[in-house]
Amino acid sequence: MPNNAMTMIRQRVSWLLVAGVVALIFVSYGATPAVTTALLASTVRQSTPLVLGALSGIFCERSGVINIAIEGMMLMGAFVGFLANVYTGNLLVAVLAAVLMGAFMGLAHAFMSITLKMDQIISGTVLNILALELTGFFYQQGLTTQGKLTPVRIPVLADIPLIGPVLFDNPPITYLSLVLVVVVHILLFRTVWGLRTRAVGEHPKAADTVGIDVIRMRYINVIIGGMIAGLAGGYLTLEAVGSFERAMTNGRGFVALAVMIFGKWTPLGAWGAALLFGFANALQTQFQFLGISTIPHQFVGMLPYLLTIVVLAGFVGRARPPAAIGQPYEKE
């Protein structure tokens, strides 16, 4: 009973929060329409790699495999996508290359943690270091690309004030990330695949006794997770920046992990969390843009990371990870 009361209170508080944020946006839009629109549009774009990274984590962890290699998977995807863009000049091919690279990284992680039964944290760390060093080693300065993915205006919808420019005037991967949030949420909670994935992540032996192939489920989910992380990397080099820099993921993979936990391993939750972090990032950029110089920019730059700590330490409550997470499955 007290548990139910607590969830009731929590739900009410969250709805109040959402209502408050919406009200705040309207007030702010009334006062400074241009700044507000820019800030929110920037929030959506900043949150894209985080949401994708978190979805990658959700696929892996819901099936019982810890993925701290999101960072490395993103970085490799970013790099290979960039190279493909440089050498083919075809952005679609480049995005596919990034996704494929992510799939390979996922396969590597799956092999180490599922087949070799390595400690999954170690396996993930290995991949992170590998990605950092490989991309650093092979990257040459001076490579240039013909372009990057550009915003596609959706007619009519894009003309709605505030919502239009924020949601319906974005480049393709940003749209795709929004679609994926909904699709993965439905996949996870409404389909056979999702039910089996969750069962495998919670109680693999129970899944095994009703004839579900635990190893196969985990492999496929980890590879899909890798693909989505690769896409997140592709977003950075093919949509956001248009070029590659050493270590350009800059901790986003780890923030994505925090986003996933903050969102309690659900895609919609992760989306909300990613928007929050995206907003912190956008605010930071906006501050620097507007030349608010009373606060040193290093401190402003800390905002998203500070938020990570505060949110994870204080507001998540008891987030419960999938029960079998981190444990390799062994038949007797």
Binding site: L195, T209, A323
Partner: peptide, 30 residues
């Protein structure tokens, strides 16, 4: 077989546990 240590996923509902492995579907959905 009813195992000594139950083969149930604690965080799932009864119906999810029972249907797991031989799910009834409507189109692509459970």
């Amino acid at each position: 077989m009813v195992h000594q240590h139950f083969m149930l996923v604690p965080v799932m509902s009864v119906v999810e546990n029972v249907m797991l492995g031989i799910e009834s579907t409507q189109g692509p959905f459970l």
